[in-house]
């Protein structure tokens, strides 16, 4: 990893780019807009999309996603620091490829676009059993998940095996990293995802064995206790959350499922917010990428809600907290 002062140029560029990020006031304006078209116009006025691009929201949002990585490429920084951010996407593609290969399906829309491990490459790897082409942290889980899917046809079992491997990989990457931002992001990501899994499992009455397989150990709380609490029911889990230091999650759960989803995303943005004051580390770059992805996700939520004529309050409940 480069010396922290090697990031001086990149961090200074990020400071200027941060001034162009959407603020909570921008989100409020978009939520109050009369329809999806007005939101798109607002975003285009803010510089979203590109010259000659129409009003297709997906095209505008994919251009914005591409802009994030183009900017990072221009800064000539070590790209391996961003690997951990792509783990959820590549593990997701792995799940989709295992299911497609085992069930002879072809669900093009189920894949997330990725430079290296997109749909075609992931399908080839799983079909040819060329697991050496995968990152090391993925190799062990593929044959297990593939066999489980092939023999049981249980998509949920395959999902929890791959998701658990993903969480373990994120946790390991965080512990291995020298960058505080990666450690904080990994810890927050694993803790929040564990809570999400426990909430869903508690609501659907999953077994203790399922919970123990699905939850990944993390520093924030004892997952065995969480598994037992979730197994005892949602009320027991709600009692456990404040004891584990996640009182806000309990409050959000009481409000509504969408408020809880909002809390989950906000928790990760809050984990990287201190990077706004870092002068010379990779932290502000990673935080900027997370912040941009967060605002793209928020824009997508608002546009979709507007297209479906949801009331303002319902949209506001779903919008995420902004980084700046």
């Amino acid at each position: 990893m480069a010396s922290d002062w090697e990031y001086t140029y990149a961090v200074a560029r990020i400071r200027v780019l941060e001034t162009k990020l959407l603020t909570d006031a921008d989100v409020n304006t978009m939520v109050g807009a009369k329809d999806a078209k007005t939101v798109i116009t607002y975003l285009k006025d803010k510089g979203w999309g590109d010259v000659g691009v129409g009003d297709d929201p997906e095209e505008i949002l994919s251009i914005e996603e591409k802009k994030i990585w183009d900017t990072m490429h221009e800064m000539h920084v070590d790209f391996s620091v961003f690997d951990v951010l792509s783990f959820p996407d590549i593990y997701h593609n792995l799940k989709a490829a295992i299911k497609d290969v085992c069930l002879s399906g072809d669900h093009i829309g189920a894949y997330i676009s990725h430079d290296k491990y997109g749909r075609d490459e992931m399908l080839r790897i799983v079909r040819d059993k060329d697991y050496s082409a995968l990152p090391e942290h993925m190799r062990a889980v593929v044959p297990e998940a593939y066999d489980a899917m092939l023999h049981t046809r249980d998509g949920q079992l395959c999902d929890i095996m791959v998701d658990r491997a993903c969480l373990d990989a994120i946790e390991a990457a965080g512990q291995k990293s020298d960058a505080k931002v990666i450690r904080d992001y990994a810890e927050s990501c694993v803790a929040v995802t564990n809570i999400k899994i426990a909430v869903r499992a508690a609501k659907t009455g999953k077994s203790l064995d399922f919970l123990q397989k699905a939850l990944s150990p993390c520093k924030s709380f004892d997952v065995r206790q969480m598994a037992q609490a979730a197994n005892a029911g949602i009320d027991s889990l709600m009692e456990f959350l404040p004891q584990a230091g996640f009182a806000e999650a309990q409050e959000a759960l009481k409000d509504s499922p969408s408020a809880f989803e909002r809390w989950c995303d906000n928790a990760q943005i809050r984990a990287v917010k201190p990077m706004k004051y870092e002068v010379c580390s990779v932290g502000p770059l990673v935080a900027y990428v997370i912040a941009r992805q967060n605002e793209i996700k928020t824009a997508r939520i608002i546009i979709t809600c507007k297209e479906n004529n949801l009331p303002e309050d319902a949209i506001r409940e779903r919008t995420r907290e902004m980084y700046v």
Binding site: W5, T8, Y9, A12, R13, R15, V16, L17
Partner: peptide
């Protein structure tokens, strides 16, 4: 040199500064 790298970063995005 250190300050110069930061200055170059800012001017890349905003030459007015």
């Amino acid at each position: 040199g250190i300050a110069g790298r930061a200055a170059a970063g800012v001017v890349t995005e905003d030459p007015n500064k």
